[in-house]
Design a protein around this nucleic acid. Structure first.
Lengths: 201, 201
DNA sequence: CATTTATGTTAACAACATTAACATAGTCAA
DNA sequence: TTGACTATGTTAATGTTGTTAACATAAATG
């Protein structure tokens, strides 16, 4: 009775899952509803994914890849070290603003456990490697002292956490970027603030 | 048959809910299990809370209050402006590390909508006011130019987002604070990094 | 062509949030 | 005190969820 091979059911499910996720977040994504919307029986998704976590993992992998791609592009196109750090931070936040649910998924606790999905772990490691490499590359020289290396590492962490904090607070609506300014400029301004500088900047 | 008035059921439920939340996060908190663990019927919680969101709201209010309390203490006890910003950032992260689930609850998307729980909104506003006020108080002088005021505001945002980013990445396990260093010192170091400074700091 | 595998189905299960219908303890006015 | 009202408890029901089992058929493979 049922139609078989309506096309690439797996991809249709995945695409539909991304749509739902974008609008309602991971908790609003119900497997049964997903199946219904896709026009397939309620148990069909289990033939293509390892349950709900499996679908979330697939979406997260996709998100990690797009995320890494963007960062790589930016890192490759900005030569000067300081500028590259800044540009990466801006791109980081920009991605979060463009795909807030995906961003939350890859960082939040609804992300399926990395050790249960090797491809997910790989995608995650790759994205963070891109980030870390791009930030520390210039600093990592053979003749660095231990202290200098530690400093370079701290810089990477500082840059990363700043971008992450801005991203989170913006997509949570706690920080509202000014309407009369480009998002990137706003982010660059925040990243460049030096809290130890005198007050009259 | 059933015992009535086992004591303060509302508070027992709330306490139990906090326990469960600490161990398993908001998704692991099931109303029915909560009721069972509390030794009360499965519908009883609905007499004391507005469903699951109601319980989460109550927990979140509690968390906001503890959070604000800590920040207020720190702000009141540190006089120098730069030092206060830093100390607040450290306290911010420290709270997140001490109560990761509560921190996630008050910032994440599982937090019940503020406009449905006025007390929750009040608690949230209060916490952020404490933060904002403590960071900008010294800068906000009557004779400030518009530009100076904007700068002060940006500083507050920068401080906030940095602390938030560190907090998030640490409790998500993406950043692992060195074991041989006090958490506060580690955080202070990251907060003080100036990304625009020359590389050999 | 026969068999195996991939992919679909329906039906069932247990857990969940929520609500309705009902019962009793505590409170308070008459 | 008594009688009504309210607060707080109960059980039972509804509808949704994730997941699995039992079954059916298309596609691939020998």
């Amino acid at each position: 009775m049922g139609k078989y091979h309506h096309g690439d059911v797996r991809n249709v499910l995945l695409q539909q899952a991304e749509n739902i996720l974008n609008e309602e977040g991971p908790s609003g994504l119900s497997l049964r509803r997903l199946a219904r919307l896709t026009g397939v029986s309620e148990a069909a998704p289990y033939r293509h994914f390892d349950g709900k976590d499996g679908i979330l993992a697939a979406v997260a992998i996709d998100a990690f890849e797009r995320f890494a791609e963007r960062l790589e592009n930016v890192a490759a196109n900005v030569q000067k070290h300081e500028e590259r750090i800044m540009a990466l931070g801006a791109a980081y936040v920009h991605f979060a603003v463009d795909f807030p649910q995906h961003f939350r998924l890859i960082f939040g606790r609804e992300r399926p456990p990395l050790d249960q999905y090797p491809e997910l772990r790989e995608a995650a490691d790759n994205a963070f490697d891109v980030l870390q490499r791009a930030v520390t590359s210039v600093n990592r020289r053979a003749d660095m002292t231990l202290n200098e290396a530690a400093t370079a590492y701290n810089r990477a962490l500082a840059a990363w956490s700043r971008a992450h904090g801005i991203a989170m607070l913006v997509i949570d609506g706690m920080i509202v970027p000014p309407a009369d300014q480009e998002l990137d400029d706003f982010v660059l301004g925040l990243l460049a603030e030096d809290l130890t500088a005198p007050e009259n900047s």
